[in-house]
Simulated assay, not measured.
Amino acid sequence: MSDFQLAPQHVAFVSWVREKAIEELADLSGDESGRVNRPLVQAMGKLGLLRALFGGEPGSPPRDAAALKLCLLREALAQVNGEAETALALQGLGSYPILQSGTPEIVERWIPRVISGEAIAAFALSEPTAGSDAAALELWAEPDRTGWRLFGEKIWISNAPDADVYTVFARTTRGARAKGVTAFVVPGDAVGLDGSSLDMLSPHPIGRLTFDGVAVDRGDVLGEPDKGFAVAMRTLDLFRPSVGAFAVGMAQAALDATTDHVRTRVVHGAPLARQQAVAHRIADMATQLEAARLLVYAAASAYDNGGDPGGITRRAAMAKLYATEAAQSIIDSAVQLHGAKALQRGHLLEHLYRDVRSLRIYEGASEIQRSIIAREIIGRGATT
């Protein structure tokens, strides 16, 4: 990992994360079931890796997550253990709206259990007809005497159907699009909540949820009624740069493996690296990687430093867009330079090749990131 702009404590933190992942988590990884790997999550809780998702020190109350630390954590894990990285990120994505917008009672009920690895969290936004257009949600919250009852369906929900707690976004005002969405906390064992797992290209805990009159109390609202879309967007502003960090970590692993390969693979009596076409491709891969890393950490620093929300959103979108597209290109080049053996089941690059594809889709596809960037620049006149 490049140490540009990294303070000594950040370098030490990255080393600690990688050491723990290699020494403590490797034997718990490799689950191909496509379901939540609870032993792995619990181990990360015991090691303190999940605690690092949130600000503050062990023993103190958690507070707003720091984007820089989140990115460092995700990049470091991605280089050595992609399954652990994904499990950790999903814990953060599912629980951050609770920390950000929940009442003290809701925070106390769920966040300590998420940090320990006891409770699995999930972020339930996408629906069959509301993916890229998240404001088109149709999951309906019907008011009743004590709160609401939820009716409808969610799909492409990570950690579903195994999560213990869901952050669920539902429509509370018809016809209002983003202005009529409310965020709720829903326990995984709620009456009327059902789900099923989906079989994906890369084994990943993801599924479908159905809500048949699931009851939620007024105290289960995150933030205010009809203002849940802002809860979702604040969460994505934090996590989109860290998706870029995940991509950077995977791309770094691919580049490291490919550099070693071209140095030692002999073709026509000389190392593969002696061929100019190969050397130039390595140079392009490294340049893409460094540019992606710079965008990711610039976006993370902007988030942590506050300032114009539009600028934070724009930088987050740029980081997610460029880093995920670059990682796809870098890993594809790595496969090409390795040849057929990179496609053999179980090879590092075969694994990375399958895993990297989803990054350009989830938490806003690349096309959506381009629309966000254009809107912020053209609509608001932002240039820096």
Rank of each mutant, 00 (worst) to 15 (best):
H10E: 15
V11L: 11
A12H: 13
F13C: 02
V14S: 08
V14W: 11
S15C: 04
W16V: 03
V17I: 14
R18L: 05
K20L: 10
E23Q: 13
E23K: 15
A26P: 03
D27C: 11
L28K: 11
G30W: 06
N37K: 09
L40G: 00
L40K: 03
M44Y: 03
L49H: 01
G59W: 04
S60K: 11
D64Y: 02
A67M: 05
A67F: 02
K69D: 10
L77R: 01
L77C: 04
A78N: 02
N81Y: 03
T86R: 05
A87T: 07
G94H: 05
S95W: 00
Q100W: 12
E105W: 06
I106W: 09
I106E: 15
W110E: 02
P112C: 13
R113D: 04
V114M: 04
V114L: 06
G117K: 04
E118Y: 08
A119E: 00
E127R: 13
P128E: 12
T129V: 10
G131V: 10
S132G: 14
A134F: 04
L139E: 01
A141H: 03
T146I: 15
F151N: 12
I155G: 00
W156M: 12
W156D: 12
S158L: 00
V165H: 03
T167E: 04
A170I: 10
T172H: 01
T173S: 12
G180Y: 00
G180S: 12
T182D: 10
F184G: 00
V186L: 05
G192F: 02
L198F: 12
S202R: 08
P203L: 14
T210W: 04
F211L: 09
G213C: 05
A215G: 01
R218P: 07
D220C: 03
V221Q: 00
L222F: 04
P225Y: 03
D226K: 09
A230Q: 14
A230F: 08
V231E: 00
M233Y: 10
R234D: 11
R240Y: 06
V243A: 10
D256H: 07
V266N: 09
V267G: 04
A270E: 14
L272N: 01
A273K: 08
A277I: 05
R281V: 05
T287M: 08
E290W: 02
A298L: 07
A300L: 03
S301G: 06
G307E: 06
P309R: 11
G311A: 10
T313Y: 02
A317W: 08
S333D: 12
V335T: 09
L337T: 04
H338I: 10
G339S: 08
L343T: 13
R345Q: 14
G346C: 09
H347V: 07
R354G: 12
S358Q: 15
R360D: 06
S366T: 15
S371V: 10
I373Y: 07
A374E: 14
A374M: 09
R375I: 08
I377D: 15
I378P: 02
R380D: 11
R380L: 09
G381V: 12
